[in-house]
Simulated scan of single mutants.
Amino acid sequence: MTVRIPGFDYRRIAVGGPIALNAAIGGSGDPIVLLHGFPQTHLMWRHVASDLARDYTVIVPDLRGYGESDKPEARGAETYAKRTMAADVVALARALGFEQFALAGHDRGALVAFRAGLDHPGAVTRLGLFDTPPTVDMWEVLHGADAAVAFHLYLMAQPPGLPERMIAASADEFFGHFLDTWIGDVDAIPAEVRAEYLRASREAVPSIVADFRASAGIDLEHDRADRRAGRRLAVPVTVVQQDWGSVLGFDAAALWRTWTPDLDHRTTRAGHFMAEEAPAEIVAALRDLLTRRPI
C-alpha cells in the first residue's frame, strides 16, 4: 500500500479466527466506521474521513477480501456472506474499545452495513447507506436491457472457476472499466489512487468474486428471511444514491421505507463514486445523520 489517509494511524486488527483487517484510524470522540465499495479500498473515504476526524473517532477498514485485509479462501458460502463480513466490523470496533458505533457503507460496504444493522442492532447506532439497495431489492429492480449496467453481478454469480479466470486474464481492464464508466468527475480519482485500486483488485480476484457470488446466494437468502419475518432497521438511516429509481422504474424512497421507519433519503447528481466526487455533500449527509435524533 503506497497511498494512505494523511494523519491516520494504520493497524492490522484481529476480528476472529485467523482473520485480520487493515484499518486506518483517526480523530477522537464518538466512533463511526466507514466501509468502502467496489472496486476500491478504504482510500475512497480519504476526504470524508479527514473531515469527520475533527469531531469523531473515524475507523476506515479494508473489508475482508479487499485491500490489505486478509483474503481467506472461500471454503463455503459463509466465508464472504455479508453476515460474516458484518461480524468482522463489529469485532473490529470492539477490539478498539467501542461496543456501539455509527456505521456508513458505500456499494459493497453498504450491503455489509445493512446486514450489520439488522444483525447487530445493539451495536450499530446509526446507518449511512450509499448507492446500493439491499441485496434482495437489488436483484428485483434489475430487469431487461437496463440490467446491462450490472453485468458484473451476473458474471460473478456463476460457479467458481470461469469468472475468476476471465477477470484475472484482464484484471486492470475489468476493474478499470467500472472506475471509468461509473464516475461523473474523472478528476476525482487521481492517478496514484486509481493505480492503488487496480493493484489491490488485481491481487484479490478470487475473494472479490466470492463476495459477489455470495450476494447471488446466501446474502439473498438472509435478506429474504428477514423480509418474511418483518425485520427492520431500528436506528436512524440516511440513504444517498443516484436517481436509480427513475432509471430502473421504481420508487427508491418507498423501497427503503419498507426496511426502516426512520429514513432520510437523498439523491445526488454525483456519479457512483460520490465520496470522492462530492465529499462535501457526503460529509454533510453524515454529519446530519450523526446529530439526528431517532424518531
Rank of each mutant, 00 (worst) to 15 (best):
D70N: 08
A200G: 06
H36L: 10
F101W: 02
F250A: 06
A74Y: 01
F175L: 08
T181W: 12
F101T: 05
T268W: 14
A77C: 11
A14E: 14
T267D: 12
L290G: 00
A150W: 11
D146N: 12
R213L: 00
L255F: 03
A81M: 11
V33G: 01
W244E: 03
T260E: 02
E192M: 12
R227T: 09
D226A: 12
L263G: 09
A234P: 04
R227Q: 14
F273T: 06
E221T: 10
P294L: 09
A284Q: 14
A169P: 04
R64F: 06
G176A: 03
G109A: 04
A23Y: 04
V33K: 01
W45Q: 01
I183C: 09
R194A: 10
V209D: 01
D9E: 15
M166Y: 13
D88Q: 10
M85N: 11
A195D: 13
A102M: 10
Y197M: 10
A229R: 08
A252V: 09
T132I: 12
E173T: 13
A53Y: 07
A191D: 14
E140T: 08
R232T: 14
V33D: 01
T260A: 04
I19W: 09
P163Y: 00
L111A: 14
A81E: 07
G245Q: 02
A278Q: 15
L248M: 12
R228C: 03
R46W: 13
L34Q: 08
A93F: 06
A234D: 13
A87P: 10
R257P: 04
L155V: 04
E221P: 04
I218N: 04
I13A: 13
R75C: 12
A216L: 07
P72V: 04
G249D: 01
R231F: 04
E173I: 09
R287L: 07
V235L: 13
F114I: 10
G105W: 02
H143F: 07
H47F: 11
D62W: 00
V193G: 06
I208C: 14
Y80S: 06
L34T: 05
T57V: 05
E221I: 05
S215Q: 14
Y66C: 08
R231K: 12
T238D: 09
V149K: 15
T2D: 15
H143V: 10
L35Q: 01
R232C: 10
I5T: 02
T291C: 06
D262Q: 03
R194D: 12
D70K: 07
D62H: 00
G176C: 03
L127G: 01
V58F: 01
E281P: 00
D88P: 08
M156P: 05
P72D: 04
V15L: 08
V48T: 09
R202Q: 05
W182K: 15
R115A: 03
V283P: 03
V48P: 01
P163G: 00
R75E: 15
Q241M: 09
F101Y: 05
